[in-house]
Design a protein around this nucleic acid. Structure first.
Lengths: 225, 225
DNA sequence: ATTCCCTATTTTGCATTCAAAATTAGGAAA
DNA sequence: TTTCCTAATTTTGAATGCAAAATAGGGAAT
């Protein structure tokens, strides 16, 4: 198994919450599960620590990082900036074909909205945001966007919405698609910011931060893998 | 030596160009120099690879990453977005004390400009940009900014300027300081973008990209450490 | 001289090992 | 029972060892 694959697999385990935020990462068990020795596992953990998904505790191993409200706010703030930039660039560079794909994803999303299928709605939603970032044609931007969004993925795409919020979000997405089709970079940038600001408010209101009560320096629970 | 320190030391070696872009990284020699074994060295290299400073070649070790023109353009583009965001946030959050420090750095920079001291000018210049990002009060933003700017540091802060360009840059910096003092987020954001666009043009014009002629898949020179 | 091929050496990637640190478990004292 | 101390166990962090891959070297054939 290649280094990058080890990183991906562990990242998936963390994002799925299989090792919940704050839980200690059991090297031994993970090694057994991935059928690798501790050396490549630990290399991957250091990389994930640099990404912010893992917290390293000197002489005490590593745990799944947990986000405070402040972390969440900071991450959404940067995400807004990145999506705003992506929106502007995308309007300059997006192809007609890409616009077609995004329009199709939007239509599918609207369909799931009408069916009240939040899971599928979020799936399309995420695809749209990622497609806009991809359309910016800047791999560096894609990389940063992925690392930032990975950390807020669960909050962003799991938090339930009130019916009002959901209707507003869909409405905003119509404006997003519209701005993209008109290649109105400034407009797209602006609506994306507003859209993400609303999402952030929802998430923080829902208290999605991953900090539990209690001393964060205390020995964390051990995740069973 | 702590893991993070190993990463920092190797990062410094790469940024100093001591191992030039494209050169193979000699694990053995670096181990000897840092007085560590290959295990922690390789952990650090994987982290630096994730940062984009090192390129991993399966079964063929790692080399110092080299930037193409496209990489340079992409990095500057993202850097513009990050500084623009930082500028906006900084105007909301910067303290009077921080403004004072930035004003002082600006004065020092202007002094070095008048003396024609490019090295010292760039030192102050970089301090100002970093102070604005710091004033945004968003550690996530600082982290991304550092990783992006690390990769373009040499291009950004080494490229010589024509007298016209230099005069323009100083003039832009006056506008930057002014916008910050007026806490004009939109204005600061805008001038920072313009300023960085100019810098990018300079760098690309100077042909600072790190791609050498020849097949990039060929065995690279080995750096002597 | 140049190209090809085969062997010797080096380098890589990972498993294993080992000392140091932390954690756990157990028993004595209050 | 609760608290504190000590010894056994586990876990961590890094060095070492080892097989596989890549590279370098050195003729033989053209």
């Amino acid at each position: 198994m290649l280094h990058e694959e080890v990183v991906s697999r562990i990242r998936a385990i963390l994002l799925d919450g299989e090792i919940p935020p704050g839980a200690r990462i059991p090297e031994r068990d993970l090694c057994e599960r991935l059928q690798i020795s501790r050396t490549p596992l630990r290399e991957a953990l250091k990389v994930l620590a640099a990404e912010g998904l893992v917290q390293l505790l000197p002489n005490r191993g590593s745990r799944a990082a947990r986000l405070t409200d402040k972390d969440m706010r900071d991450l959404f703030e940067v995400c807004q900036g990145l999506e705003a930039l992506a929106g502007e660039l995308a309007c300059e560079r997006v192809t007609e074909e890409e616009i077609g794909e995004i329009a199709a994803a939007h239509a599918a999303m609207a369909h799931h909205y009408r069916n009240g299928d939040l899971i599928q709605y979020y799936r399309c939603n995420r695809a749209i945001h990622e497609a806009i970032v991809a359309a910016a044609g800047n791999p560096v931007l894609v990389g940063l966007y992925n690392s930032v969004t990975a950390r807020i993925r669960r909050a962003r795409y799991v938090t339930p919405m009130t019916s009002d919020r959901w209707a507003l979000a869909l409405h905003e997405h119509e404006a997003i698609l519209n701005a993209l089709q008109r290649r109105d970079g400034v407009g797209l940038s602006h609506i994306l910011r507003t859209h993400l600001r609303h999402k952030r408010e929802e998430v923080l209101q829902a208290g999605f931060a991953e900090t539990e009560s209690g001393d964060p320096t205390m020995p964390p629970d051990r995740a069973r893998v």
